[in-house]
Nucleic acid binder design. Structure first.
Lengths: 191, 191
DNA sequence: TGGCAAACGGAACCTGGTTCCGTATCTTTG
DNA sequence: CAAAGATACGGAACCAGGTTCCGTTTGCCA
């Protein structure tokens, strides 16, 4: 195991294009949402469509690559909030709102997140793998402290919150954050 | 006004085809969801695609026509529940769960409902026009009785509940009803 | 510098929605 | 009952956007 140079060392132009694509995709996502046409991203990056598919076989791979940083920030914020906030429930509430902020500022991301299209498996998987444990930890802590009623399934909570964020950036009359607040309040154990 | 025969009396075959399309669409919706391919519906009804577009210019028109009955049932259930249930909050809770049952048994309907595609304007409009007032009435009653905290926007509530139902029929691990229960509980005025 | 594997570009392809018009059918009227 | 006009039909053609494929180019190493 642990061979010294298992990396087949990629070509320089390939690396360059990959970066260019990430830049272009990030820009295209903010401008036109995560559903922006593949050709547009390619054009913006100055490459052919084939190059996109070579580096990012599915749209989800591209989305993941673009937002990985922010997802990891959410992951790290979990334990941090748990330590910083006066109670686990407060930490959970803040963490969820952080997640909501993340989703609602990425046009269409919440929608993509819930798509059952096979191409979004990667995205789904990443959220489950990285965010779910954090959510579960916060949930467990809040349950243990008696602040919320036991039996809340982390996946249901994450998915539900994600769903509530769908379309939030389009309809000014729909207040996703308000709905999420309601959910957080509903989690509270009855006084 | 009130001319005697303002109806331009449609041709018999047209009427027949429209019915056939409604049948075919209803069957196709349960089998493959509301996103089923237009051509499939046409084939099932034994008509050409042109005939679909003639009778139902947008997919939303077809969805509306198929589910109009059940939507109206929801409309009528509002006041009925308000009269039958011990409290307005109970009536609101039951009514929302009824709405959830409706949405989660129609593959993909919840998703279509939140789409901002112009083609779904009709669907959106119908829900807003017919269901929103009912929701508002229940909400007002529950607010007036002091059971829930004031300030809940009916549109946000309806839309949020709709969003929570998205994908509920696909992922067995996601419990949409549980999330909706949480929202209903969160609506409660603090004891 | 020559040779080759890696990567590229973008035309071609596929799927699914939408339009359009020549044809068939119904209805009315003489 | 037949003819004429209106109405509706069917499905080929079109369009958009994702995906694939292969001839060509480029970078890397010997």
């Amino acid at each position: 195991m642990g061979s010294d140079t298992p990396a087949p060392r990629k070509r320089a132009d390939a690396e360059r294009n990959k970066l260019a694509l990430l830049d272009a995709a990030a820009a295209a996502f903010v401008e036109s949402g995560v559903d922006v046409a593949v050709r547009d991203i390619a054009a913006r990056a100055g490459v052919g469509v084939g190059t996109i598919y070579r580096h990012f076989p599915t749209r989800a791979d591209l989305i993941v690559a673009v937002y990985l940083h922010q997802i990891e920030a959410c992951v790290e914020a979990g334990p941090a909030l748990l330590a910083a906030r006066p109670s686990p429930h407060a930490a959970l509430a803040d963490w969820i709102m952080m997640f909501v902020d993340f989703l609602t500022t990425k046009h269409g991301l919440a929608g993509a997140l819930q798509s059952d299209d096979a191409a979004f498996q990667t995205l789904h998987g990443l959220f489950l793998e990285r965010l779910l444990p954090v959510c579960a930890q916060l949930l467990d802590a809040a349950t243990a402290s008696g602040e919320i009623t036991p039996g809340m399934d982390p996946l249901t909570l994450m998915r539900g919150v994600g769903n509530l964020c769908i379309g939030a950036e389009n309809d000014p009359h729909y207040h996703a954050r308000h709905m999420v607040q309601l959910v957080i309040k509903g989690l509270r154990a009855d006084s």
